[in-house]
Design a protein around this nucleic acid. Structure first.
Length: 876
RNA sequence: GCCGGGAUGGCGGAACUGGUAGACGCACGGGACUCAAAAUCCCGCGGUGGCGACACCAUGGGGGUUCGAUUCCCCCUCCCGGCACCA
């Protein structure tokens, strides 16, 4: 064995061996139980970033652990290969998105392999390949047949200079990112998937996902947003014609407090009023300026303008004026809301601003009400007041009666409303899956017949920022109508990339199936037993995937209700941010690798200077690794310098998977140091050069109870750590798994030089057993080094198929245990009692303890709390 | 703005179901080895007071429940994720 740890050499050798033996090929049937471990597939952006390293290491640790536990494990990998960044790169470098994407995939695949992940590469897929996306098209056509896919208009960001649709990301402070032009909202026809038809099931089946984090389920439930309320109408007569203005409210109990009604700028009544009032028309246009992002709309200043149109209160008949409000969303409810300034904070502010009437109609346990300032309890549930026949009624009773009264007049009824909207999938972009529709002057929108699928995207286009290049490709655009055969045009919109990622986990089960979308193997491997990915996907990707799976189930393609049994949402990877203000006042960011941090004697930070010029930098705190803050760390440099095992060990040790992870160069050094120590110890060169016979796993001692206590203490420490690590593997807290391994090595090193240990043979055997356990516990995290040591020391043929070590419960038993002694909950010492001591004996020992006596002195003991095996608390 | 989450020594974090706050690691200080440095090893390391035994304070801030709260409840502050066309 090499005396020194040389990661580069052993990692390459071990990876080659795995590749040659196809060690991680998943078989589609087995007597073992299956385990499908999936990490969210990467977007091929160029090279791996730390978030990828973290994500795939978590998945790999899990996969290897489950294999040791006797499962038939599948861990596949693919590429979420369509998307906007490829088009941006294409424009910047004048290279087709396809070439850029395929080059990135090749490079990143090499990087993934160098990290030693136990991936079955035979199932690799890329969503930009026609043999993948043809099935997007195929299923879209099936959904069209069932009217689960349909066409309607939708709102997009429009850049009036480039004459192109912008993604939200491309709108910066309300302007187009390339042109700087003020962005406008524009209505265009789009295809939608009717996810709202599954709203009820998507919500209710969250309860059947015990393996999902509560926070993710809460977020999804709120996103779906089922609310029980009343849909009601305000009748009006306009230009001699009668009409009804519909609104939805969850607070029908406040209906007697309505003093105005507000509609969205896109509402029909707003358009009607604008035709007769140029000032209002201007305001409606103003509302249409700016982007479509909800965060932007919700934080902008609340503005409104009266329309001069009056409607009739459905219960009192009172005249109520209609306003146009820039905060009313056309996409939620009816695009109109009733204004109750007395009991809605937003309406209160609006009424104050425009001098509208504010009326109290709810009383909350007699709490004071004044029109001067908003108070939080104004919005609470209470009892109706100033509400005629509803006075004195609590919430539910008043809503029931109001709904009944409205219904009697034909002006409303109870209704369930969802926040969830149907999924618009049309994108006016090139690098995506073509929507398989042909537009014919005679026949209209005609679906492409199945036998003409896939509609293949030409891969040689280079976008230029002005619209979709497919519109400039006659060979793609011009086709024959599938129905009548006359010349027709292809749809040039492509699908949202969330479509691609909504079912890739199914395709991994049968990536070589080219006749069908999926085959019966999908029912063997699915559902995914453990899905791992960033918390930023908690809503959209996961919700779309759940929806898509249910649609495929209803089409008879899969037999599962939910795609992911367990979900782990990993935290983001953060690093420090350093910058200097430039002359223009803008921040110039410097990569932490180029920064030297200086400390004072206490180890507190003094200053940070740029290595290049030695001058100080400002700290921008800690933030997610990003290009804009220039605080990313290239994993390749880390792997090249320290090896994959160190990289993996660091990301697992630095924080638990669900929390954010802070980058630390010193932490990496520490991880590397541990592996060097492990290697030196195993190579028989421990700290004092004591050389044990570790070359054999043959252990002849079966009864350790007669061994000296030093040996029994040592084994107890090892088995306690093993027990801890086993527990932590199950709950996926890998940082403490690593900690347990470090404790084991500390014990081993301390043990090798001790005295009074009995026979050298027994010490050697206990050490051998401990190292055997340590290597197996550590293996999923750092597979290369443990693989080599395991083989070199003769523990077995191949650690990848070694079983998980068993805890020797007998080793954990102590004859005497230490209990914590408290008086009034304060720590006052320890008492040592026999393992078998009963409660009375413990209480007596505790009260008699001199330390306890000191604090009891002169007071009466009220009671004694004994927590078995833990503590005694004397209450005086 | 709305929804969700987080905050523990100089730093990353640990503490399992309410039971010794600070495991493990990093940084830092002292020492050994060395001509010297690196590497390695040993010791120390939350704060205040005390020679010491020990006492008191301390888990973002304020309040509550409990024999006992980092853990449960209420209020507040700051930070992070998402908001439907970034993926």
């Amino acid at each position: 064995m090499q005396p020194q740890y040389q990661p580069a050499a052993i990692e390459q050798q071990v990876q080659q061996e795995w590749a040659d033996k196809k060690s991680f090929r998943a078989v589609d049937a087995s007597h073992k139980p299956k385990y499908y471990c999936l990490s969210m597939f990467p977007y091929p952006s160029g090279k791996l970033h730390m978030g990828h390293v973290r994500n795939y290491t978590i998945g790999d640790v899990l996969s290897r652990y489950y294999r040791m536990r006797g499962y038939n494990v599948l861990q596949p990998m693919g590429w979420d290969a369509f998307g906007l960044p490829a088009e941006n790169a294409a424009m910047a470098n004048n290279v087709p998105p396809a070439k850029w994407t395929y080059d990135n995939i090749a490079y990143m695949k090499k990087q993934l392999k160098s990290l030693g992940f136990a991936i079955d590469w035979e199932r690799e897929l890329a969503t930009c390949r026609p043999d993948y996306y043809r099935w997007n098209q195929w299923l879209f056509l099936r959904m069209l047949e069932k009217r689960l896919a349909y066409k309607k208009t939708g709102t997009v960001n429009w850049d009036p200079v480039d004459q192109t649709v912008l993604a939200n990301e491309q709108v910066i402070d309300g302007r187009g990112w390339r042109t700087g032009a003020l962005v406008e909202k524009r209505e265009i026809p789009m295809y939608y998937l009717a996810i709202t038809r599954y709203a009820e099931e998507l919500l209710s089946s969250l309860d059947r996902l015990p393996g999902w984090p509560e926070r993710v389920k809460t977020m999804q439930a709120n996103w779906i947003g089922k609310s029980f309320g009343v849909r009601l109408a305000f009748p009006y007569v306009l230009g001699g014609k009668a009409g009804k203005l519909w609104v939805f409210t969850t607070r029908a109990d406040t209906i007697m407090g309505v003093t105005f009604v507000a509609v969205a700028a896109e509402h029909a009544l707003a358009a009607e009023a604008a035709r007769r009032n140029p000032k209002l028309a201007e305001f409606v246009e103003e509302c249409k300026r700016g982007g479509v992002q909800e965060a932007e709309i919700a934080t902008q200043e609340k503005k409104g303008m009266p329309t001069g149109i009056f409607v009739e209160h459905p219960l009192t008949g009172e005249n109520i004026e209609v306003w146009v409000g820039n905060y009313v969303l056309m996409s939620y409810g009816e695009g109109a809301v009733m204004g109750v300034p007395g009991h809605d904070e937003r309406d209160f502010a609006f009424a104050k601003k425009y001098g509208l009437r504010i009326k109290q109609v709810i009383d909350v346990e007699g709490r004071p009400y004044s029109l001067d300032a908003w108070q939080p309890w104004y919005a609470d549930y209470g009892v109706c007041v100033n509400s005629a026949r509803y006075d004195g009624m609590p919430y539910q009773q008043s809503v029931d009666m109001i709904a009944a009264d409205l219904k009697a007049k034909g002006l409303g009824e109870k209704q369930v409303t969802w926040r969830l909207r149907d999924w618009g999938i049309s994108r006016q972009r090139y690098w995506g899956c073509p929507i398989p529709i042909v537009h014919c002057d005679s026949c209209g929108d005609v679906p492409v017949p199945d036998d003409q699928l896939p509609v293949v995207l030409p891969e040689d286009c280079v976008p230029d920022g002005s619209g979709n290049p497919l519109n400039k490709r006659p060979d793609f655009l011009n086709t024959a109508c599938p129905k009548c055969g006359k010349p027709a045009k292809r749809e040039t919109d492509t699908m949202d990339t969330f479509v691609d990622s909504s079912w890739y986990f199914l395709r991994f089960a049968c990536a070589d199936q080219h006749e069908r979308m999926v085959d019966e193997r999908v029912n063997y491997w699915l559902p995914v037993d453990q899905y791992i990915g960033g918390i930023e996907h908690a809503i959209l990707h996961l919700l779309y995937s759940r929806f898509w799976t249910k649609v495929m189930r209803d089409f008879g393609l899969v037999k599962l209700d939910e795609p992911f049994t367990r979900l782990l949402t990993q935290g983001m990877v953060l690093n420090e941010i350093f910058f200097r203000k430039t002359d223009g006042g803008r921040a110039q960011y410097f990569n932490p690798a180029d920064v030297e941090v200086q400390f004072d004697d206490q180890g507190k930070r003094k200053a940070a200077v740029l290595k290049e010029d030695g001058k100080p930098l400002e700290s921008g705190g800690i933030g997610t690794m990003s290009k804009s803050k220039n605080n990313g760390v290239d994993p390749q440099a880390l792997i090249d310098q320290y090896g994959a095992d160190t990289a993996r060990l660091f990301v697992m040790f630095a924080s638990p998977p669900e929390q954010t992870l802070e980058w630390s160069d010193d932490g990496v050094e520490g991880a590397s140091r541990f592996l060097r120590r492990l290697w030196l110890f195993a190579a028989g060169r421990g700290k004092d050069n004591t050389k044990f016979n570790l070359s054999s796993a043959f252990i002849s001692i079966t009864d350790w109870s007669s061994q000296p206590s030093a040996i029994r203490d040592f084994r107890r420490g090892i088995h306690l750590s093993l027990k801890q690590a086993s527990y932590d593997y199950e709950r996926m807290q890998y940082n403490t798994v690593v900690s347990a391994c470090m404790k084991m090595l500390n014990l081993l090193e301390g043990f090798s030089g001790g005295q009074g240990l009995g026979s050298v043979n027994a010490v050697s055997q206990a050490s051998s057993e401990a190292l055997d356990i340590l290597l197996r516990v550590l293996y999923p995290v750092t597979p290369h080094i443990t693989c080599v040591l395991w083989k070199e020391l003769g523990y077995g043929a191949d650690i990848i198929d070694a079983p998980w070590p068993a805890v020797d419960e007998a080793a954990l038993v102590q004859d005497e245990i230490d209990l914590v002694l408290q008086v009034n909950g304060k720590l006052r010492g320890n008492i040592r009692v026999a393992r078998t001591a009963d409660r009375a004996a413990i209480e007596r020992l505790a009260v008699e303890n001199p330390n306890a006596q000191k604090h009891i002195a002169g007071q009466t003991v009220k009671k004694v709390v004994v927590v078995p095996g833990r503590l005694v608390n004397i209450v005086v």
